[in-house]
Design a protein around this nucleic acid. Structure first.
Lengths: 402, 402
DNA sequence: GCCACTATATTCACAGACCTAACAAACTCG
DNA sequence: CGAGTTTGTTAGGTCTGTGAATATAGTGGC
């Protein structure tokens, strides 16, 4: 193949697989089980091409036949499915207060997850690399799979990143990480290819689509310690020129608003992000458990209070939600998506409070109504970023090689 | 070819040409003159492939050899260039107060332009189709080119659109146009393929890149009667699920802000758009010429006052600019572009007032500084949308057929 | 002015992807 | 049980793009 130069692919939105083999694998994976005829419809390839490609995938042990479909008046369809045990990938999501690991099989299912306390604010990058390497190895060992089947590791952390140099740059609570090429270090340490992405973008890749209609353009609104978003087009994430697209946390929603760590003022994250919500709750005298509890853990405590009837906690969260609704409106206006998914650790606990408020604003904004944008909550919010990191690795070129 | 199904291409961001022939044509067009060796580098194709493809393009009369480059120690390069007179396309930009036509040759250069008064607010769609058809025919005739060389017509108007149905929907001052399939009617009337796009998106396609470094991800901030933006990735515009991406005019920049025609409140366009600027200027007692002067014409009058030293006019425009800077910041945060171009009729006159204010905000926002986003003014702002419409047609499949 | 040397472009034979057309297989229904 | 229907495969051909070898048109040494 090789029709499009590397140079012209640089923005990283990875224009749909030029590769028919990858297209078939993707189609089977997202469908669960399909027949060859259905694949011809989904992919636009001809029946003979599907036959050939599928045969090779079966020969390579990546796809299995899975029984017969029911007849519709003729020969019944032979169903195909991804051979889940063919390959595995690891996804790792690092933030200050938690470190999440997932092991994902070739079908895209999570076969193991592990959530650990984060390394904290003052962590030494080299020690974190060492810890992640050790724990990744342990995860693989305990799962009992053949380590040689692990394709690679997707690593995500809060953005922004400098993607071309593959280096984290100025994350909120980790300034001493600036310039540290963590994924390269992980590659060296583990002997596996590693991919670096920001958490929100990965979350967009990790969201399972459970809507009725076809969704080819969707976005994730991601809230962890910060607020971000990711855009997915036909299964490929859009990363922008420097890998920092979707920084909805740092759009200005209030002229003269509060100072943000990013240097700007009035940022959505500074006004309504988890850190601010926690600070407000503490100021209001809410009991969030240990005073050392910070970040998403403290935020979750507020959400639990609100859900058990604390009206002060609820008011604080509803205020935050009204600002996030504004961010959601910006996402739909800028990206024109069919679906917006709320995801990330913060939404995992507080999502039910945020969802209706955000839905209401999207539906009442004119363009939202005109184009019928759906807003849903991701039930896997806590692991979304790690899963997304794994799935991005799963969709890489090497994942389909024999 | 046909590797990727129509279904999977639906979002309309048209992943870089799968077609090598189109890739070569695009590369030559954007380079001006290039040699075959350079094409191998730009396109990633091998030398023999370039030879073959270029020979066919020359045989088909789409490309010419254009002398020798200087030798670098061996055989000098044979330079290639697009045969400008091979084909032509027409671009039409309709807004309430102006109707702009451009005739663009196969090299992408504007060979004729024509600006006429717009049809006004109460125009009858069928009459406008008739008028555009007549004037398009006249434009082609007066230019003296062979009408059979005209490939098609790109038509743009203020968004939002319903792209799949190819129908304009609820533009600000043209509600009675809702549901009118103008490009289909133009196709019937002119016997030429026509393409419908919103003005801001087309403007992104029409911006000439004159920056030093390679720009693969850029956006246009477009101001005409309304405010919009367009995103361009490797020469392909991103249109979103329904063709309404980039609606930066309707992001909320002020909670509880003024009512917008779109139904929402606090929209950038309602606060700082040309209509509001004109209303403020009239309220301040500024003389904008005829009281019947509206839209961009009235806005231009204010800009001229400001540029000739009227401090009230300047203050009003600077206030508008500070809000647009906010919109620009949102664009760079969401899209992560390398370049942001201010374009459109409103910037054509007032751009020099807006540019420094917008630049200042982009450069002072943390991510802007980190990633070095450039902000420039398009010198062809007035025609950008029409030119972009033409160029989009020029990049269509049929434009490279023999 | 002739001879290397070098960079540019082309020719030729071949591999692979994908298509059309014809065919085989496996079920339903009368 | 055989016609009809749907699913999947085989066979043959086209087209794109490749690698290896070759032709072309300059430069610079002597």
């Amino acid at each position: 193949m090789q029709q499009v130069s590397d140079a012209s692919r640089s923005p990283g939105y990875d224009p749909a697989p030029t590769n028919s083999r990858a297209l078939i694998v993707d189609s089977i994976r997202s469908a669960g089980t399909v027949s060859r005829v259905e694949l011809t419809q989904i992919t636009g390839l001809t029946a003979p091409s599907v036959t050939t490609l599928v045969r090779r995938l079966i020969d390579d042990g990546l796809v299995d036949e899975a029984g017969r479909g029911s007849s519709t008046g003729g020969k019944p369809r032979t169903m195909l499915r991804i051979r889940a045990a063919a390959r595995y990938v690891v996804g790792v999501h690092l933030s200050a207060d938690s470190l999440t690991y997932v092991l994902v099989d070739y079908a895209g299912a999570v076969v193991a997850r592990w959530r650990r306390a984060g390394p904290g604010e003052d962590s030494d990058p080299e020690q974190v690399v060492e810890r992640i390497a050790t724990e990744t190895t342990e995860l693989i060992e305990r799962s009992g799979i053949d380590p040689s089947l692990v394709l690679g590791l997707g690593f995500v952390c809060p953005g922004p990143l400098i993607r071309n140099r593959g280096v984290t740059s100025a994350p909120p609570s980790m300034t001493h990480w600036v310039g540290f090429p963590i994924h390269r270090r992980l590659e060296e340490r583990l002997g596996l290819p590693a991919l670096l992405e920001n958490d929100a973008t990965a979350a967009a890749a990790g969201t399972r689509l459970t809507t009725s209609h076809d969704v080819s353009v969707m976005a994730a609104l991601f809230m962890s310690e910060g607020i971000g978003s990711g855009l997915r087009l036909n299964g490929n994430v859009y990363q922008g020129a420097h890998g920092n697209a979707g920084e909805v946390g740092h759009i200005c929603v209030q002229i003269g608003g509060p100072q943000c760590w990013c240097g700007s003022t009035g940022c959505l994250e500074a006004i309504a992000g988890p850190a601010t919500v926690v600070a407000k709750a503490r100021a209001a005298g809410l009991d969030l458990g240990s005073p050392r509890r910070t970040g998403v853990a403290a935020f979750a405590a507020i959400a639990r209070l609100a859900l058990t009837g604390d009206s002060r906690a609820e008011a604080i969260l509803r205020d935050s939600a009204s600002w996030l609704a504004l961010g959601a409106q910006t996402i739909t206006n800028m990206y024109d998506v069919q679906l917006l998914v709320l995801t990330g650790p913060a939404f995992a606990v507080a999502g039910t409070i945020y969802l209706p408020i955000i839905q209401e604003r999207i539906l009442s904004s004119a363009f939202g109504r005109a184009v019928d944008t759906e807003v849903v909550l991701d039930e896997r919010g806590h692991d979304a970023a790690a899963i997304g990191a794994a799935l991005m690795m799963l969709r890489s070129e090497r994942a389909i090689s024999a």
